[in-house]
Nucleic acid binder design. Structure first.
Length: 626
DNA sequence: ACGGGTCGGACC
DNA sequence: TGGTCCGAC
């Protein structure tokens, strides 16, 4: 699982920021009277008082732990305040925590590359900011330095008496090595950011500052809550020497157990005894090298610039007697899950201009009269279509396909103990200079949800799920394009505006038969009609569109009717599917382009690749503002 | 009858 | 790829 990355760049400044008992803080902000008293967040309190998923530091003093039941917590801490996770559609609703996490990220992402590692954790690469500070305003006197930064814990400082004094001296050491000075700057930046977070969100957090993610993560947990810890290189060896392997990220599971049980490695330092080859032999090449490196505090793992999640999922378990026994029960719960999922991907689209492309269903099930004892319910996925009903419909088909495979040819009673669906392959929709401009009177979001209006029932043969085929049925293009009211009203393109080409990157041109050029021309056909009875002024929303900082072309996607927009500029050719182009579309083009297009329609039965420099390419790729 | 609900990543 | 498994919070 872990993979070694050589730390090419040696002196990075990496921070890991971890919110303190985050769910509790979110609830305390909502309900300030809870502040200061022992508090825990539980979900579902009907069975033994619910399961604790976050515990305040006041409550921890009483020995309250995560994974206790509410009832247990009350035994060890009678005054504990138990707050329930909101429930929506019969399941836990974590949206409040997700959006609180986003508040934090929006502050933390201002000083450098930011990776959202979980709902309440981020990594920051502050190398550039720290270098700048060091060269412009290096910390030379205590007065220069944020008070919070001076409270940092600096690992490896010898002084046992006054920790804070030592830390302060460390900050302003003029003879410190460059690496340490960078860390000091990083710590000052982090202290400032934490102050901003507190001011703007009322949340406290803890942080670790080090030269790589692994050490930063380790450090952020060392002094909590609301404190920060610095790991100078000089402290790494001693730190790891006594660190139990299980404390290291990635070693909390089977791999860590194996190190202990099979190699007798109890601390990370113990790993130093093993050669890289030995570790590779035992755990495989990648893992072996990775282990060898982390024993030395080496990790080149980079901070990904990613503040948004890569997928959205929701699920629910149905333990013991609650296990679902009928397809009706399964469908009913799937519908609830799909509603939530739909809401979330819709929000993602509205807020972030992103579109999800695959829908995946997971389930756990067992057979009551089991012949094959431990067969797993297979997960299934299909292209994702926007719209609650479509998602529900597709999820149902995915479940049916999975169930058939799960049951095989036997006639068996079954129980489902968990269900989850997720939306993945989420791609940015770069700003539109393409066909979607014709429809930009409305948001991308409404365009897509309109495109998946549920009044038209499409019937995909459910058998197609098991196969490699797309279960998404083709629907009438007019369904998309018919929704033109805002286009007509206030945002129709002017007649002379360049009709943008719709195309896909050639490397993505795997869609067979339903190439996007086809949709493009269908689109032009309709939009040209709309355009012809529209006012000729550029609309307000076009200007807004133009300001989006994404770039380049827009493409109608395979999975949603009006969806994916992909970057083109780097491609030197576009591949067009020339099938089924309505001649009236071509009439809209300038004469010389018309001739060109008619030419390649005649000459090619299926597809045509135009190279950069061709007149068609030039025409369609030229900015209409030019 | 399970820490539940979600995530990310690697592997085949 | 899709599907599975692992690890994490």
């Amino acid at each position: 699982m872990p993979i070694p990355r050589p730390d090419l760049q040696g002196d990075r400044v990496i921070a890991h920021v971890d919110m303190d008992c985050f769910y509790v803080q979110v609830e305390q902000r909502k309900q300030p009277k809870l502040r200061g008293s022992p508090t825990a967040v539980v979900q579902y309190n009907d069975w033994k008082g619910g399961a604790l998923i976050a515990v305040s530091y006041e409550a921890r003093k009483f020995g309250v732990k995560r994974s206790m039941r509410g009832a247990e917590a009350e035994m060890v801490c009678p005054n504990i305040q138990l707050v329930q996770v909101p429930v929506a559609r019969g399941k836990a609703d974590l949206n409040a925590y997700r959006s609180a996490g986003s508040e934090v990220v929006s502050i933390l992402s201002t000083k450098g590359r930011c990776e959202r590692a979980s709902i309440d954790e981020v990594y920051l690469d502050l190398t550039d900011a720290a270098e700048s500070m060091l060269s412009e305003t290096p910390p030379e006197a205590l007065e220069d330095i944020d008070e919070e930064a001076l409270k940092s814990h600096v690992l490896g400082l010898s002084g046992d008496e006054d920790r804070e004094k030592n830390a302060q001296r460390w900050f302003i050491r003029s003879d410190a090595i460059h690496q340490d000075k960078l860390l000091a700057c990083g710590a000052i930046i982090v202290a400032h950011l934490r102050g901003e977070v507190l001011k703007e969100t009322e949340f406290t957090c803890s942080a670790g500052i080090a030269h790589n993610k692994m050490l930063a993560k380790l450090a952020s947990g060392m002094h909590k809550p609301a404190q920060q810890t610095i790991v100078p290189s000089s402290a790494v060896k001693d730190l790891l020497a006594s660190l139990p392997v299980k404390k290291m990220k990635q070693l909390g599971g089977k791999l860590g157990s194996s190190l202990q049980n099979d190699l007798g490695v109890n601390t990370v330092g113990d790993l130093l005894k093993y050669s890289e080859e030995k570790l590779q032999e035992r755990y495989g090449f990648n893992t072996g090298t990775w282990l060898w490196n982390i024993a030395r505090g080496i990790s080149g793992d980079e901070v990904k610039g990613r503040v948004l999640t890569k997928s959205h999922g929701c699920g629910k378990t149905f333990p013991g007697p609650r296990a679902l026994k009928t397809t009706a029960a399964v469908e009913s719960w799937l519908n609830q899950l799909c509603e939530e999922l739909s809401e979330r991907i819709q929000l993602d689209m509205d807020q972030n201009k992103r579109v999800a492309h695959t829908l995946t269903l997971h389930a756990r099930a067992f057979k009551t009269s089991d012949v094959e004892p431990h067969k797993k319910f297979p997960s299934k996925s299909c292209p994702l279509r926007y719209g609650i009903n479509k998602i529900q419909e597709d999820a149902k088909k995915l479940f049916e396909a999975g169930l058939r495979e799960f049951l095989g040819s036997h006639i068996n009673a079954w129980r489902v103990t968990s269900l989850s669906i997720s939306a993945g392959k989420i791609l940015d929709t770069p700003r539109t200079s393409s066909i979607s401009r014709f429809f930009q009177g409305k948001s991308l979001s409404s365009a897509i949800s309109d495109a998946s209006n549920d009044d038209i029932q499409d019937d995909a043969p459910s058998s197609s799920i098991g196969c490699k085929e797309n279960i998404v049925p083709e629907s009438d293009e007019d369904e998309v394009f018919a929704h033109g009211k805002s286009v007509k009203e206030d945002d129709a393109p002017s007649k002379d505006r360049k009709i943008d080409v719709l195309c896909t990157q050639s490397r993505k041109q795997k869609d067979k038969g339903n190439g996007s050029i086809l949709r493009f021309f269908s689109g032009i056909k309709t939009s040209a009609k709309l355009a012809s009875n529209a006012p000729s002024s550029r609309s307000e929303s076009h200007k807004v569109q133009d300001q989006r900082d994404h770039q380049e072309e827009c493409v109608v996607d395979d999975h949603s009717r009006l969806g994916t927009i992909s970057n083109q500029q780097r491609d030197d050719s576009w591949k067009f599917n020339a099938e089924d182009i309505d001649p009236s579309v071509i009439d809209e083009l300038p004469p010389e382009i018309q001739r060109e297009v008619r030419g390649w329609i005649c000459s090619s039965k299926r597809a045509k690749t135009t190279k950069q420099g061709s007149s068609i390419f030039h025409y369609f790729s030229t900015d209409d503002n030019a």
